[in-house]
Amino acid sequence: MKPELQDLPLLDNSGSHRFELTVNHATAFMEYGDRPEAIALFHTEVPPQLEGQGVGSALVEKVLTEVERRQRQLIPLCPFVTSYLKRHPEWQRLVAPGYQRWFQPTASR
């Protein structure tokens, strides 16, 4: 994560079911749903003026840190989150068992 994004707070806007990260007066967000043992991540959106600056990746990392802090499992339904998890396998430990297969290498025949 870029140093300038590291200290920015992650807001849990529970009324809207969104995690939010505000950078330079613009807000990137990730929509989520609470499940009994897990948090499902549905959609990530980064405003056009913040694209290409690492804001989306910082948002994902902050959300994953929060999921871990809450001792919950992760249901990664958002393609951006799934892509991040494939690039950062150290976070795959949070993925709920039923979704682990998305991150397993394909067996060669």
Rank of each mutant, 00 (worst) to 15 (best):
L10K: 11
D12C: 15
D12A: 13
D12M: 10
N13G: 09
N13T: 12
S14D: 15
G15Q: 15
S16R: 15
S16V: 14
H17V: 13
R18L: 09
R18T: 08
F19Q: 03
E20Q: 13
E20D: 12
L21E: 08
L21W: 05
L21S: 05
T22G: 08
T22H: 12
V23H: 03
V23K: 02
V23G: 03
V23F: 03
V23I: 10
N24L: 06
H25L: 14
A26D: 05
T27S: 05
A28V: 00
F29K: 09
M30Q: 09
E31C: 09
Y32A: 06
G33I: 10
G33A: 08
D34F: 04
R35G: 01
R35K: 15
P36C: 06
P36S: 02
E37Y: 12
A38E: 01
I39G: 02
I39N: 01
I39P: 01
A40Y: 01
L41G: 03
F42Q: 12
H43Y: 09
H43C: 04
T44V: 10
T44C: 04
E45V: 14
E45Y: 10
V46L: 00
P47A: 08
P47Q: 10
P47L: 01
P48S: 15
P48A: 15
E51P: 07
E51Q: 12
G52R: 00
G52P: 04
G52I: 13
G52M: 04
Q53I: 12
Q53M: 11
G54R: 04
G54P: 00
V55M: 04
V55H: 01
V55C: 00
V55L: 00
A58L: 04
A58T: 02
L59P: 05
L59H: 10
L59F: 03
L59N: 01
E61F: 14
E61T: 11
K62P: 08
V63N: 04
L64K: 03
T65V: 15
T65A: 14
E66I: 13
E66T: 10
E66F: 09
V67G: 10
R69P: 03
R69N: 11
R70K: 12
R70P: 02
R70Q: 05
Q71V: 11
Q71M: 13
Q71P: 01
Q73T: 14
Q73G: 05
Q73K: 12
L74Y: 01
L74P: 04
L74E: 05
I75D: 00
I75H: 02
I75R: 04
P76H: 02
L77Q: 03
L77I: 08
L77K: 01
C78E: 06
P79H: 09
F80I: 08
V81T: 10
V81C: 06
V81E: 01
T82E: 07
S83N: 14
S83C: 13
S83E: 12
S83A: 15
Y84S: 01
Y84T: 06
Y84M: 11
Y84Q: 02
Y84R: 07
Y84N: 01
L85N: 02
K86I: 13
H88E: 07
P89R: 05
E90I: 12
E90Y: 07
W91H: 08
